[in-house]
Amino acid sequence: MQEDQILQQAISAARAGRELTARDLFLDIVKANPRSETAWMWLTGLLDDRNDCIQACERVLEINPANEHARRYLTRLLGEKQKEQAAEKLRLHEQLRRAQELIRAGSHQEALILLRELTREAGVSAEAWDLLAQIAPEMDEKILALEKFLELNPEQAQAREELQRLRHFQGHPLDLAAMYEEQGNLDRAITAYGLASMDPRLKDQWDSIYWKIVQLENLRQENIAHISPAVSVARLAAGPPILYLLLLMVQVGLNPFAEPAPLLWLGILPVFMGGFMVALASIRSRHRLWYILFKDLGAGGSPSARAWMSLAGWALILLPHAALGLAALNRLIDSTPQFVP
C-alpha cells in the first residue's frame, strides 16, 4: 500500500474514533517516513504520554518550523508540564518537611516510612536521601541512601567519609557494636556484639565480647543513663589542667603576678590538649581526629591508634609538669647553699 493510502486510512480511523488503530497506522508511517509532517501532527493528538506528544510536536517543527498550530500546542504542553512539575516538586518538598518535623518530634518510625515512600519516587531531592541515611536502622539501607545522596551531591566529602565508615563497619562488626554503644543504643549494641561473637575471625576475642554483652545487659537492666562521649571527653580532659594549676599556684607562691612566669602559665595549654587526647583515647568515641590522624574509620580508633594517642597525650601532660619540676628544682638549688640532703 502507498503511504498516501495508509495516511487516508489512518485519518479516517482517527475521525471514526478508532484511536488505537489510527495511532498504530501513523506510527507505521513515521517509521517508514520520519519526515511525514501530517503523520507527526496527527500523532501529537493521539499519543497518551505527554512527553511523547511533546516529542511529536518537536518533530513537526523540525520538519516545518512555520507550523503555527504545532508551535502553539507545544507551548501549551510545555506549560502544562512545567506546572505539573512545580506541583510535584511542592508535594515532595512538603513531604520532606513533614519527615523533618517527625524526626524532630522523635517519631523516627513514621519518618522512616515517609522517607522510604518519598525516595521511591523520581526527582526526589538529595536531602531526602540524606535524612534517610541518618535515620535508617539497617546498615545496608544507610549505605544505599548515602550512595544515592552522593550521586546527587558528589562533592560532599563528609558524606563520602561517612559512607567509607559504614562500609568499614560491614567488615568490622566489633567497631559497629562499639558505635551503637557510643550512641547509647544498648539493644542494637548487644545484638551487634552477639553477631560479632559468631564471626569466626573474632574467635579469640570471644571472652571479651561476652563480658561486654554482660556489662551492657547490666546497664540496660539497671537503667543507667547514657552520657554522651563528648561530655565524657570534656569531663576527663579537665582533670590534668586543674592539677597543673594547683601545682603552679604553689610554685608561684599563690600570687600569679609576683613572679611572672609566662611559659609556665602557657604550659596549661599542652596539659589541656594532652588531657583531651588521653580522654579521647580512653573512651571509644567517634571523633574526626581519629580520621585526620590515622585515617581510622571505626568508632574510637584502632587499639594501636588509641595507644599512640594516649602516649602523645601523656607526653603533653608530663612535659609542662617536668618543666615546672625543673623550675622548682632550680629554685631549690639556688636558694640552698648545701643542696645535698
Partner: peptide
C-alpha cells in the same frame, strides 16, 4: 616558704 617563693615549690608538694 611557699608564700615567700623559696624552697622546692611545687616539687615539695609532690
Amino acid at each position: 616558704l611557699i608564700w615567700n617563693r623559696q624552697g622546692a615549690g611545687m616539687l615539695s608538694t609532690l
